[in-house]
Simulated assay, not measured.
Amino acid sequence: MPTRPDIHAIDPDARLNLLRDALQAAAGGDRQAFETVYRMTSAKMFGICLRLLGQRADAEDVLQEAYVSIWNKAASFDPTYASPITWMAMITRNKVIDRLRRQRSEGPLDTVERLDELVAPAAFGASFEFRGERRRLDSCMERLEDAQRQLIEVAFFEGRSYAELAEHRGIPLGTVKSWIRRSLARLKGCLGL
């Protein structure tokens, strides 16, 4: 039996190409290619789930839901508009938000606060899955000041909460929240939403 290459030993460009090719092959129903996608990305996607949900069991459940969705939507992946990791992270975040909404109806305060921290950037970004919109978003993002643009990117693409951003950047929590809210409002205005 042939041995599998160590995917972590591959240079970053080759790794990106391998992931892109594997995701596109999975779109055609190639289960072995999907296994490669999973091996290359599951740690990152699990990290997003765990960071946002806080409970290992919930994170594992949501991770499974995310990969079922990734398998089912693989044909919609377009490498000209997003990297595989960005596309998969968006799907994973949406699954986390779905879980938090279900938990919200059960009412724990910390879940409501986490949902409020996630929904604005994620709901905003979810409308840009369509072809061509990414370029408009990039153009509008360029109009933001560097600090605000970086906060939006980290909040959305890395799944960081307001509190994590404040601590990491050394900025007061209230400032982070207002910068993100104002930046989202500017982006929505720029995009005509």
Rank of each mutant, 00 (worst) to 15 (best):
M1V: 11
T3Q: 12
T3V: 08
T3F: 10
R4P: 01
P5C: 02
I7N: 12
A9V: 05
I10L: 15
I10T: 14
D11K: 09
D13P: 00
A14Q: 14
R15V: 02
R15S: 15
L16S: 13
L19S: 10
R20L: 01
D21H: 08
L23R: 03
D30W: 03
D30I: 01
R31H: 05
Q32K: 12
Q32Y: 06
A33G: 08
T36H: 08
T36K: 11
V37S: 09
V37K: 11
Y38S: 05
Y38K: 01
Y38P: 01
R39G: 04
M40Q: 11
T41W: 03
A43Q: 12
K44P: 00
K44E: 14
L50D: 06
Q55P: 00
R56W: 02
A57N: 11
E60P: 01
D61G: 04
V62H: 02
V62C: 01
E65C: 07
Y67T: 06
I70W: 02
W71Q: 08
W71R: 10
W71G: 06
W71H: 07
K73E: 13
A75K: 11
S76W: 05
F77D: 04
P79Q: 06
Y81A: 11
P84K: 08
P84S: 04
T86W: 01
M88T: 01
A89L: 00
A89D: 04
N94F: 05
K95L: 05
I97A: 14
R99Y: 13
Q103I: 07
Q103R: 14
R104S: 14
S105D: 14
E106H: 12
G107C: 05
L109A: 15
D110P: 02
D110H: 14
V112M: 09
E113T: 10
R114A: 09
L115K: 03
D116R: 11
V119M: 15
V119N: 08
A120W: 10
A120R: 15
A122I: 14
A123V: 06
G125E: 12
A126R: 14
A126I: 03
S127D: 11
F128L: 09
F128H: 13
R134G: 10
R136H: 12
R136C: 03
S139Y: 09
M141G: 03
E142T: 09
E145Q: 11
D146Y: 02
D146C: 00
R149H: 01
R149Y: 00
Q150A: 13
I152S: 01
I152W: 07
V154W: 08
F156Y: 15
F156R: 11
A163L: 10
A163N: 03
L165G: 00
H168W: 04
R169C: 01
G170F: 02
P172D: 08
P172Q: 04
T175W: 03
T175I: 05
T175M: 07
I180P: 01
R182C: 06
S183K: 07
L184E: 12
L184I: 15
R186Y: 07
R186T: 10
K188V: 02
K188D: 13
C190W: 09
